[in-house]
Design a binder for these strands. Structure first.
Lengths: 197, 197, 197, 197
DNA sequence: GACTAACCGAGACGGTACGTCTGGTCTTTAC
DNA sequence: GTAAAGACCAGACGTACCGTCTCGGTTAGTC
């Protein structure tokens, strides 16, 4: 989705080499020490070619992550909401671990002082996944596992928020037991009211 | 609390000038564009003097924030937990707003790829506040507003997590109404079970 | 006179556009800041087309200069050698002025570290003019204005050398009076010996 | 003689390393292929340090040449002008040979489209040598080897011009015999008039 | 008159060097 | 003897051109 030059004439093999090199280097040296010079060298590509299509290293990594993530399956739906949330939270934890090597965490850090990158990150990576989550929650409302009047926007925060709180202060990701409890708390908060029973 | 040279001979007025300059510059240009060069210039101090006492700009800002935050009052306790949580959450939101000028958000971003800074941030700024929160929650357990068997570590995540989820993806901080709902959901999750009523 | 492709299919209008653009740009920005990119853009031509027919910007300019210079008249011959030398030196001075915009000076500069260009410059532009000069001098020997045993190769150096000495050190081209004196000195050096009188 | 920073605090060993590296690299790869990057790398110096003290590679080479040339002896004076001119011309020829490795020729080429460099080259390297030459010529006027009314400015051109004419068109430097003839011609031009005999 | 070779404009590509910038260290000077 | 001032090494930044290389499209000369 670059801006300036003619996308039709773009060399797809260069694009792939760049995205692959970016992810590999990020895993090797961490997002903070990642440089465009190194990406170009590793990909066997001119720096100009990177700057032609992306405005910053953040956008390169974003596209790289987006590329490998597009094949991600739909939100799990086994019928049991607690199980599905647990599954999905585990997947997110994997994406965020280890923090100093995860490209996603790198993007999060950079987005904190790059409004443009933040917007792209939100719209291209996060919004679609939030939409999937809310769709799953709507199913749960239909099946009565979640209160019909639950605010699904806040539900996102309740379910995923704990991960990010722990991430930003390096408090350690929840283990299986904690995850189970977190899901249970969230469902208790969002479940049908006692009076409805 | 520095490492190498003799702290007794330290020039306190330089220290203050540096911390003040750091916070002011952070507010002016944002944490991302903040440089040690600029801090030194603004503070009328040699770069060497900064590097002598701090290992990185993150640690300078951390100490600056810590300095102004030590005078922060205890966790509020009006007797009504929901009110107190709301008050406290509002205070935290203020610290994190606006994200591109807040020194705390800058620290969070840097800590994401600086384990040492992350540890300092956690131990010096966060842990004490978590302890205060848990203390307040224990009071609430005594008064029956919170279930006696509630896991207070997870309670932190449930209450504060939503803020950080929204922060990292630039989803916008909750407004008053959302905050109220979030507190209500959290208390419903943590409150005494219906069967206990 | 290019090397590789088929000269018969060459597009003459492209050739002209390139040579014209090259000379114009050289006059505008100077030889040093002249680039093949700019020539191509100005001529509305692909860079490939330039590289197909010329190996370097020097050769483009050389051909451009050669093109406009082929119509140059023969060496002047009024019968008075001093007058003719003066006329011809003035013409050369015009070619070399102003140094930073003259394509010929640009070629000279580049030829100083490009042996191939130097050879082309010498054989295509200079040798014919040296030959004309020597022809004129031979006339002068016949009429007794120049010693019969004068070394005409050195005569070239004596007559034209001063211009290049002044050129390379930016000492300013000789004015009319100086030119007259230079011609007089040269003729005195080369003229019939006093004893021959 | 740099402009901006404080020359008193300059690191002399860096300066020497840079000038040495520049001359060596120039001899190795030629002036045209000489780069500031390579000089910095060879000298074990930051590029910034070069740019701090010199505005261009030309000025670096100029200072390097000037440095090694300051120890050059005075103009030779054996009493016989022809001998002295021959000696001195031979020394100049050595400086200009081989053209593609000689730093002086590189400077001449660059000066042709860099007015600032040209001025420095003229004032720092050439003018003093011209002054020495004219001083020697004044001696020759006193001893009657040169006409008292000879124009010494033009004498410079007559004596040295031939070298530069041959240099710029790669016509080959004069050999010993040609040199002798050139000196003879020049002295004939400048010598006392026949009428004065 | 259609075929076909190759020249053409356009411009993306791998490279090299540019000149600038910031980070963190080391040296010099003045108080 | 401390600390300001700031020069230093290191190396990434983003840019400019280089010379090479595909692309379609046109444009000649051949059959």
């Amino acid at each position: 989705m670059p801006a300036s030059p003619n996308p039709l004439r773009r060399n797809e093999s260069s694009r792939r080499a760049i995205l692959d090199a970016a992810l590999k280097l990020c895993a090797e040296v961490g997002y903070g020490r990642l440089t465009i010079e190194a990406i170009a060298a590793r990909a066997g590509v001119s720096k100009k070619t990177i700057y032609r299509w992306w405005p910053s290293k953040g956008r390169v990594i974003l596209e790289a992550v987006d590329d490998v993530a597009t094949v991600v399956a739909d939100y799990p739906d086994t019928g049991d909401l607690a199980t599905d949330l647990h599954t999905q939270l585990t997947a997110v934890i994997d994406l965020l671990t280890p923090p100093d090597r995860s490209p996603v965490v790198g993007l999060i850090a950079e987005a904190l002082h790059d409004a443009d990158l933040a917007q792209q990150l939100r719209e291209r990576l996060i919004r679609p996944r939030i939409a999937q989550f809310k769709e799953r929650m709507r199913q749960a409302q239909l099946s009565g596992q979640v209160a019909a009047d639950a605010d699904l926007d806040l539900a996102v925060d309740l379910v995923y928020g704990p991960l990010y709180h722990r991430l930003v202060f390096h408090l350690g990701m929840p283990d299986a037991r904690e995850l189970e409890s977190l899901v249970a708390y969230a469902l208790r908060a969002l479940g049908p009211t006692s009076s409805a029973r």
